[in-house]
Structures are given as C-alpha cells and as structure tokens.
Amino acid sequence: MATNTWLSVLTATPLFAVGLTLAAYLAGSRLFQRLKRPAWLPAILIASLLLAGALALIGLPYATYQQDATWLTVLLGPATVALGMPLYQQLPRVVELWRPLTICLPVAATLAAFYALAIAWLLGSSDTILASIAAKSVTAPIAIGITEQLGGTTALLLGALLVTGVITIPCVSLAARLLHIDDERLIGFALGLNGHAIGTVRAFEISPTAGAFASLGMSLTGIFTALLLPLAWRLIGMGG
C-alpha cells in the first residue's frame, strides 16, 4: 500500500506529529481571525477539529500521534511553572482585595466544581467521568495535573474545559443582567473564575480592568482547586 509506506516514512520521527500540530494551530488561528473571533468557537476548538480531521484523513492512529506529540506536550510542565510570573504581577491586587477574596474565592471555586459534580452524580455518571470534569473551571495546564491526580481522563477534561469556557460567557451576561451588576471588576472576576482562559480572553475584550480581574480569578481558582480538590477527593474516598 503506497499510502501506508508514505505514512510510515513520515511518522518514523516525532517531527511529523509536531509539524501537524503546528500546522493545525496556525491554520486554526488564521481561520479564527477570518471568522471575526467568534466567542462561541474558540481558536483552539477550530484547530483541534482540523487536527482531528487530518488524523482521520491520513489514518494516523490517535495513540501514535499522542505519543509523538509528547515532544510538544512535555513543555506543559515548564509552561505551568511560567504562570508564576503573571501571578506575581497580580499580587498587589490580591493584597488590596484580600478580605473579600478570602471569603468569596474558596466558596465560589468550590461551588464551581461542586454544582457540576453533584448534577453529574445525580444523573448517574461514573467515577471516571466525575474525576474528569471536576476541574472544569480550572485553566488547562493546572487542570491536567489535577485530573491526573484524581484519576480522570485528560481528553474528557479538555472537552469539559472547552464547553465550560464557552458557556461561561453567555451565563455571565445573563447573571449580570439578572443581578443588576455592571461593575467590570466583578464581571471580569466571574469570567475568569468560572471560564478560565476562554473567559479571561472575553474579559480583556470588555476592558483591561475586566481582563486583569479575570486573570486574577483564573489564577486563584487554579491554585485553590489544585491545592484542595485532590485532598478533598481522597477524603471522600473517590478514585482509590
């Protein structure tokens, strides 16, 4: 089979998987700009659809691709550490708002995980599914670490992250209208806390202040959830 020969020649090194990922990422970003940056269709979703389509088309098994793409994904480690820099830059704002934040953040970040878990559990979802969606409001690099601790599936987690991020945007507009809130700081914080990076990007479109509060909400939710969720999981005896 000629196509199989081609495929085995190309996939002899991980560079094919790396190149394919770069190509899909660039094409996805370009298409996203062309579509006038729709909030309901993030660039990463377009790029992933293109990539999944390409894999299916050339018949490269996902397991092979995933293994070769480790050359890229290994960088997630240092990239997560790198988030310590923006976190440091937000410290003055944390100090300024420490009192409301110490009350609001633990409650809101806990509920962000709890509501979805409770509903999924009531609807009879398996332990693996619960472990995979628990970190749904946490920014991806941190959420992947949490999900590995809980014994969930990374692929399902990332799908849950996309859905949560996209749905957070209309939810925040609706809730702000219901509660008569027009303070950009609060709207930004809610976007980042619930909708992680996707919500934060949206908040920066509203205003720089909203964006700054969104990054704050995103970082603090990530840290709080990373420190406490795996511990809570162990205490209630999930995941072994």
Binding site: L117, S125, C171, N194
Partner: peptide, 27 residues
C-alpha cells in the same frame, strides 16, 4: 447528555453564585 447538562447547568449556577457573592462583598 449527562455530562453536558452537568457542565451547562453547573456553570450557570456557579456564575450566579459567584456574581451574587461578589456583589455582596466587593461593592
């Protein structure tokens, strides 16, 4: 279906709680 309902309804409830809390606490 269960996963999507959990994510969508869970996020809506969570956003409502967050904004309500923030409104009470921050200003």
């Amino acid at each position: 279906t269960a996963i999507l309902i959990a994510l969508v309804v869970g996020t809506l409830l969570s956003v409502l709680t967050t904004l309500w809390l923030l409104k009470r606490l921050i200003g």
